[in-house]
């Protein structure tokens, strides 16, 4: 009872509350992207043909590959929790590391995709893009904002999992106290869910 800061941690541990809080936080992420999805749906509705045309620039293979990578990283994330619950700290750590690794690959792919678009001049404010139709400009605007924001979430997710690895090593996260890892997992899965929708909307409409 000596330090105020720690009171909450020691006296009162409520995993249920932590998870509820995390879910509520996920809802805020959901509606954050929801605003963009609302925007996407309206612009797509009003510029259907242009969107189809612009989507032809997208590389479906890389998109599908990235989907598979992210889904697999979700799997390893989920497995890391089970591993921990079954007492194998090492296995859990490896799964967490693999998750981060897959996140990294995802970003590398994304980097090549973006740099390709930049290379051929399809970036916001570029001359070649400004010469295109309004719908195509909107498509690329949405593409950069939505995948960019999603990429940012992947980076944050990787950082969070890295912290979780440190916690696991230091036994802050243990077999009986793993709610932090669970929360990190929830976050990572949400990032996956958002990609599940981004993928068809940008890559599969041509």
């Amino acid at each position: 009872m000596s330090s105020e800061g720690n009171v909450a941690v020691h006296v009162h541990r409520d995993d249920e509350a932590s998870k509820l809080g995390m879910w509520l936080f996920l809802f805020t992420e959901l509606t954050l992207f929801g605003g963009l999805f609302l925007m996407y749906s309206v612009y797509r509705y009003t510029h259907q043909a242009d969107f189809h045309l612009a989507a032809q620039n997208m590389n479906t293979f890389i998109g599908a590959l990235n989907t598979a990578i992210l889904l697999t990283s979700s799997l390893t994330m989920a497995l890391s929790i089970t591993a921990l619950q079954r007492g194998s700290k090492k296995l859990s750590l490896s799964f967490q590391a693999i998750t981060i690794f897959f996140g990294l690959i995802f970003l590398v792919n994304k980097y090549f995709e973006w740099s390709h678009e930049f290379h051929i001049g399809n970036f916001p404010g570029s001359e070649s893009l400004l010469n295109k139709s309004q719908g195509e400009i909107l498509f690329f605007g949405l593409y950069y904002v939505m995948t960019g924001l999603h990429g940012l979430h992947v980076i944050i997710g990787m950082a969070v999992i890295a912290v979780m690895m440190k916690f696991t090593i230091n036994n802050v996260i243990t077999r009986t106290n793993y709610v932090k890892l669970e929360a990190a997992g929830l976050y990572w899965h949400l990032v996956d869910v958002i990609w599940i929708f981004l993928f068809p909307l940008f890559y599969l409409i041509s």
């Binding site: 989920a78 997992g185 899965h189 949400l190 996956d192 869910v193 599940i196 993928f199 068809p200 409409i205």
Partner: peptide, 21 residues
């Protein structure tokens, strides 16, 4: 086409939500 894509995405989301999450 878009409807089918979104339905499949929803099924995938359902799986992630119920099992992974």
């Amino acid at each position: 086409t878009i409807a089918i894509a979104l339905i499949i995405a929803s099924i995938k989301t359902y799986l992630v939500l119920t099992i992974f999450m």
